[in-house]
Each structure stands twice: as structure tokens, then as C-alpha cells.
Amino acid sequence: PDFIDATRAAFELIGKPWVIENVPGAPLHDPVELCGAMFGLGTYRHRLFESNIDLTAPEHPEHVAKVTKMGRPPVAGEFMHVVGNFSGVAEARAAMGIDWMTRDGLREAIPPAYSEWVGRHLIASVA
């Protein structure tokens, strides 16, 4: 089920700063898109962020690195596509800037660099 509208409505009732994250194609209102290349990561991992505060995404660099094919670890210079039953947990941890997660966690995770970026915007909005 799609709970985005209900979540947004609940957040609006609270009246505090909020952020909703989802994947490209999700029905978010005027979201910004973050990409691993914006943060020097080894994955593109596009994610959308909608908020009731001003979010201005960093410059989105051109995608020039090849993305590793599903089922095999990346070779030098390739970005990693961390989804499903990917190969190379250690490589995925490095690509996403996460050193503590299992495969199951990694394939669902938001890179900490994205969370830090959102958090800085939230803090600035209430300062």
C-alpha cells in the first residue's frame, strides 16, 4: 500500500519540520533527488526527498562510471548497484559509506551521507 499521502498529512498536522524519503517514481511533491556521486560514493543510488523545509540538492555530477552488472562484484572504476542479492558485501559497504550493515540492510539503506545532508538542512531550519 502507498502511505505517502497519509504520512504527509500526519506530518502537516504536527507542524514541525519533516522529510519523506522514497525511490524515483514515488508520488512525492516537488522532491529533490540525491545521488551517491554528489557525495563521493561508489554508487549512484538515487533517492527522492520531500520536505516542508527548503531542500536544495547539491550539483548532480554527470554519471561517467560504469555500473557493475548484477550478480558480480565491481571492478576498479565501476560503481556498484546495491540491490537484491548482489555480490560483494564488503564492496557495497565501501560504495555506500556504511561499514556495519549486512547484505539485507545494505540493499534497503539510505547512505549516511544523505541522512547527514538532510539533517544539516533540518537543523538549519530550526536554528
Rank of each mutant, 00 (worst) to 15 (best):
V19C: 12
V19M: 09
V19Q: 05
V19G: 00
V19R: 01
I20P: 10
E21D: 14
E21K: 06
E21C: 11
E21Y: 08
E21H: 08
E21P: 05
E21S: 15
E21T: 14
N22E: 11
N22F: 00
N22C: 01
N22T: 07
N22D: 14
V23R: 00
V23Y: 01
V23F: 03
V23D: 06
V23I: 11
P24I: 11
P24M: 06
P24K: 05
P24L: 12
G25K: 04
G25N: 10
G25I: 14
G25V: 14
A26E: 13
A26Q: 12
A26C: 14
A26K: 08
P27S: 12
P27F: 11
L28P: 06
H29C: 09
H29I: 15
H29N: 15
H29R: 13
H29S: 12
D30S: 13
D30E: 14
D30Q: 12
D30G: 03
P31W: 05
P31G: 11
P31K: 06
P31V: 10
P31S: 11
V32A: 07
E33A: 02
E33N: 00
E33Q: 12
L34P: 08
L34Y: 08
L34G: 04
L34R: 05
L34E: 14
C35N: 12
C35V: 09
C35Q: 12
C35K: 04
C35W: 03
G36M: 10
G36D: 12
G36H: 13
A37P: 02
A37C: 00
A37N: 06
A37D: 15
M38A: 09
M38P: 00
M38S: 07
M38Y: 05
M38T: 02
M38I: 01
F39V: 08
F39D: 10
F39G: 10
F39Y: 08
G40Q: 03
G40A: 10
G40M: 07
L41T: 14
L41H: 13
G42Y: 00
G42V: 03
G42N: 02
G42D: 01
T43S: 15
T43A: 08
T43N: 05
T43L: 02
Y44D: 04
Y44E: 05
Y44G: 02
Y44L: 00
Y44F: 05
Y44K: 02
R45I: 07
R45N: 15
H46A: 13
H46T: 15
H46M: 10
H46F: 07
H46K: 15
R47I: 11
R47N: 07
R47P: 03
R47C: 12
L48S: 07
L48N: 05
L48I: 03
L48R: 02
L48W: 13
F49W: 05
F49P: 05
F49K: 07
F49E: 10
E50I: 08
E50T: 12
E50N: 01
E50R: 01
E50L: 02
E50Y: 01
E50W: 03
S51L: 07
S51C: 11
S51H: 00
